[in-house]
């Protein structure tokens, strides 16, 4: 910005931002102090001691480690599925001509408005009849299937600015559509594909409703988190640890890649400039 720095805005924004992260600080502190100390408030300093007791106990009392790996596996598979299928479809929708192309495209890219509640009942009955309840396919299929609504739009949008000359040159050189995709388009479209992957990863890692309903024996972290309180007790220290474990990976991914989201469509405009 031009002109002098307006310090009062820095101070004001700083105060608001500090208030903003207090709840995060709250669970971190709660997880590290003995419950007897925080019963009157985690911020109180009458007596102050740090204990890793909750951090040690939670792994024994709840299958947190298993859930962690399971969540990672689900998110990885769903991300991989979307990252593999999306660019292929976006390429076909953009560079190839085939019957019903536009109709299918319109259908897919407008589905992004649908709330997840729509799939709850139909897929529940379908999985029940197919005996797929408690099979990871029961969540992977909707994870990947629903992602196309936004992922294809994102990648196709990028391809709109892809130099058409390159495609034509490849065609003249005798490349078929599949090898054009593999050798010309994919190597030059890594940034939107990567952005799709990051988004899909965050979305599937944090999913609560579908795994809660369709999975049984293994549960991902967000579902486990809702169970980490005794049937009749509340265990705030353990809850806090579980909350941190649940959110740490997506949060790190989010912080590292926030530039991808920060400027909205940086992935798209970045290629233009």
């Amino acid at each position: 910005m031009i002109g002098r720095i307006h310090w009062w805005t820095v101070v004001l924004v700083g105060v608001i931002a500090t208030i903003w992260v207090i709840p995060v600080l709250g669970i971190v502190v709660t997880s590290l102090r003995p419950p007897s100390e925080v019963a009157l408030g985690w911020w109180r300093l009458d007596t102050f001691s740090i204990t890793f007791d909750a951090w040690i106990r939670v792994w024994d009392e709840y299958p947190l480690a298993q859930a962690f790996w399971f969540t990672a596996m689900l998110a990885a598979l769903a991300t991989l599925g979307t990252m593999l299928l999306t660019p292929a479809a976006a390429y076909a929708f953009h560079f190839l001509n085939f019957p019903f192309r536009r109709l299918l495209l319109i259908l897919i890219i407008n589905a992004f408005v649908l709330p997840q509640q729509v799939v709850v009942i139909p897929l529940f009955t379908l999985w029940r009849d197919l005996k797929l309840i408690d099979n990871i396919a029961a969540v992977l299929i909707p994870y990947v299937g629903m992602s196309f609504a936004w992922s294809i739009f994102l990648v196709k949008n990028f391809l709109e600015d892809f130099p058409k000359e390159l495609i034509e040159a490849a065609k003249i050189d005798g490349c078929g559509p599949l090898s054009t995709l593999r050798h010309i388009v994919l190597p030059n479209a890594t940034s939107p594909i990567f952005a799709v992957g990051v988004l899909q990863f965050l979305w599937t890692w944090n999913a609560l409703l579908l795994p809660m309903l369709y999975l049984r024996s293994m549960q991902p972290l967000p579902v486990l988190l809702t169970k980490v309180s005794g049937t009749y007790e509340s265990n705030w220290d353990l809850r806090s640890v579980a909350a941190i474990v649940t959110t740490i990976v997506p949060l790190i991914v989010f912080v590292i890649f926030q530039r991808q989201f920060a400027a909205g469509s940086q992935t798209r405009t970045g290629a233009k400039e």
Partner: peptide, 17 residues
Amino acid sequence: GMMFVTFGISEAVSGYM
């Protein structure tokens, strides 16, 4: 950054916080 980060915390975890 601090305010944007809260956007990266899942709803369930935000709820517990």
